[in-house]
């Protein structure tokens, strides 16, 4: 396979996953803020959403005050913002178009339809129908595309590179969500807001990762911060935990890699080492300083991305 095609497939996967997470985070936070405990100001939620996409600074520079409609527009439809959902979907489709000849017609059509949907959605539609309608459709379209990735392609290199992109991005997004929520909770704690707020924050955290129902089933208890962290970082069976995604990446890399030698600091070695560490880590060891752990994790994930690029994607 051409390196350029591998690069397009990898980034197609990343952008699709990024669009999905941004959409879900914005929806969960906005909707839960509507009936939040009194002190959970909407402003607080807006700030959190912007923070996740790394847009807070840019937004404040441009607009100053946080207004519902402006914030939502920035996150969802603003094309000039390279991190908006629309920009992500455009980039995903652009990459798919560049690798069109290695995709199935069904997969390509599903991405193309998604693209037309997002681009026909106007600012007026957004103000009219509200954020729920749009983000819900985005998440749904991502599920359709994922379905075609899974069942209409040969499970070969093409498939592996799309998945590498998706898992890398998902690990990245989950880590960022955890950082954003840990920060939110830190703010809440200094204001001595108590158990109700912790519980509320944990529910939105889990929902943002599509993990609320499964964590209830797993822990059989009202969510708390300790369990939520453990679930999203260390659970090896849940597709939205950091550990799960990195383990999967290890498998796809093995599938692609033809050489059986494993050099120290090679891509496969690095991923294997991080996975092994995660498999034997307990949540108590992390809890000491969650933010340091998460920030280091983010650095490791970015490092993996760079190694993939260096080994396979340069052209």
């Amino acid at each position: 396979m051409l390196s350029r095609i591998a690069n397009s497939l990898f980034w197609m996967g990343r952008y699709l996953e990024r669009a999905e997470h941004t959409a879900r985070y914005a929806r969960v936070h906005y909707c839960s803020s509507l009936d939040a405990p009194l002190v959970q100001k909407k402003e607080f939620v807006m700030e959190s959403s912007l923070n996740l996409s790394g847009l807070l600074y840019e937004y404040k520079k441009a607009h100053g005050t946080l207004e519902d409609e402006k914030v939502l527009y920035t996150i969802t439809l603003q094309e000039s913002n390279p991190l908006s959902i629309r920009a992500c979907v455009n980039s995903a489709r652009e990459n798919a178009r560049g690798a069109r000849d290695s995709l199935s017609s069904e997969l390509w059509e599903s991405i193309n339809r998604f693209y037309h949907y997002v681009n026909n959605y106007s600012e007026a539609d957004l103000n009219d129908k509200g954020i729920y309608n749009f983000t819900d459709k985005v998440v749904e379209n991502c599920a359709i595309v994922n379905g075609y990735v899974h069942k209409s392609l040969i499970h070969n290199e093409v498939w592996s590179f799309i998945h590498l992109g998706m898992h890398l991005e998902r690990a990245n997004q989950i880590t960022r969500i955890l950082i954003a929520k840990t920060n939110d909770m830190g703010k809440a704690a200094t204001q001595k807001l108590g158990k109700v707020v912790e519980n509320y924050q944990c529910v939105t955290l889990l929902k943002s990762a599509e993990a609320f129902d499964m964590s209830r089933t797993y822990y059989k208890a009202v969510p708390n911060y300790h369990d939520s962290l453990e679930f999203l970082i260390l659970n090896n069976d849940f597709p939205r935990s950091i550990c799960y995604n990195l383990t999967r990446m290890g498998r796809y890399l093995d599938r692609i890699n033809h050489s059986k030698l494993q050099e120290k600091d090679s891509l496969e070695f690095t991923v294997g080492k991080i996975c092994a560490t995660l498999h034997y880590l307990t949540i108590q060891e992390i809890e000491g300083d969650v933010l340091i752990f998460l920030n280091n994790m983010l650095l490791s994930i970015n490092k993996i991305g760079e190694l993939i690029e260096k080994k396979y994607l340069n052209y």
């Binding site: 396979m1 051409l2 390196s3 350029r4 095609i5 069109r100 000849d101 290695s102 052209y315």
Partner: peptide, 14 residues
């Protein structure tokens, strides 16, 4: 054409 012939589509930079 590349897809229906089953051969790679390349650009000059490839």
């Amino acid at each position: 054409l590349a897809q229906s012939m089953g051969i790679p589509l390349v650009e000059g930079r490839d």
